[in-house]
Simulated scan of single mutants.
Amino acid sequence: MMQASSRRRGFTLIELLVAVAVLAIVAVLGWRGLDGIVRSRQALTEQMEQTRGIQLAFAQLQSDLDHLALRKQLRSRENMSADTGRFALVRTVLEEGEPTRLQVVTYRIVDGVLTRRESLPTRDLLRLDILWQAALNNTDDIPGVVLQSAVDTMAARIWRDGGWQPIPAEAQGTQDVQDRLGLELTLQMRGQTGPLVKVFMLGEKN
């Protein structure tokens, strides 16, 4: 009788408390691991989206530079300008059945958002001067297309005369400019320790 009673005996209160404590510890560790995986996935997704946005922005700029207007087309006017948080250029617009026209394109950082604006194309150089000054003075009312957010700074340099040089922020008249072979664009992303640097080949000869 005593052996049968011993076999029917359940868990003691202490054993149940130990079991509950072990399960609680396992649950906490499992939750922390799952939370870490979810956070890592979110961070990776944000990083991938940022990388994709930057790649699209660089691809758009490459397309604009591929159609960069030559200074001889502009009668010695500047075809690009750079200042703090802004990069502007003049590109040619080629459409089937239409004559070649000129367009001002501006990349600008406003409140950490990189946007691209393009003016209406024109064949009138005087009209182009007005559009160019509006872009330089940030007075153009053209709606911008958002390319990337969380961008702190943007800087651009041009390769000419055998080295990297700053791009003038204002038109420099009919200055003697040697071959422009490359453009270096630097973006400092928010929260990143180092900047993103992209070099574009130009191959322009003035």
Rank of each mutant, 00 (worst) to 15 (best):
E49Q: 11
S76Q: 14
T106L: 08
D152L: 11
D179V: 14
R32C: 01
L147P: 01
A69Y: 05
R71K: 08
R8F: 10
D83Q: 15
G30T: 01
L44G: 12
A155E: 11
F200L: 11
E96Y: 07
R32A: 03
G85K: 10
E204V: 10
V18G: 10
T174Q: 09
A88F: 09
M1T: 15
M48Y: 11
M80P: 00
G194I: 07
N206S: 13
V90E: 03
D161Y: 09
G33T: 00
E204W: 08
L126T: 02
Q55I: 09
T193R: 03
G191P: 03
L17T: 09
V113M: 07
M1N: 13
L136G: 11
M201E: 12
L29D: 01
E46H: 11
L114H: 08
D141R: 06
G30E: 00
T45C: 09
D83W: 14
D129Y: 09
L23E: 02
I142D: 10
L94C: 02
L187F: 03
I130E: 00
K205V: 11
L74H: 02
L114N: 07
T45E: 13
E98R: 08
E184C: 07
V38A: 15
V22L: 12
D83L: 15
T100V: 01
R91S: 06
Q165T: 13
V38Q: 12
T174K: 08
T84I: 15
Q175A: 15
T92L: 01
G182V: 09
I109F: 05
G173K: 01
I167D: 07
T193C: 00
S63F: 12
L34I: 08
L120T: 00
Q165S: 14
I109G: 03
T92I: 04
R32S: 02
V199C: 06
D129L: 04
F58C: 14
R123P: 01
Q47M: 13
Q73V: 05
G162S: 14
N138V: 14
M48D: 14
I109H: 05
V145C: 01
L29P: 02
M154F: 06
M154S: 05
S5D: 13
P166I: 15
T92A: 00
V146H: 13
L126P: 04
Q60L: 02
V22R: 09
T12C: 07
G30A: 04
M189G: 13
R75W: 04
Q55M: 06
L185W: 10
F200W: 06
A4R: 15
D66P: 10
R77Q: 07
A82W: 07
Q133G: 11
R160E: 13
W132S: 03
V90R: 01
G191N: 05
I130G: 07
V28M: 04
Q47V: 12
L181M: 15
V177W: 12
R101I: 00
T92V: 02
T100K: 01
G163I: 15
E49C: 14
D129C: 05
R160Y: 08
M189K: 14
V113N: 10
G203D: 06
V28P: 00
V105G: 03
I142P: 04
L183R: 10
P195E: 08
A43R: 09
I109N: 04
L128K: 02
V177P: 02
Q165G: 13
G191K: 05
R180L: 14
A171P: 13
E96D: 03
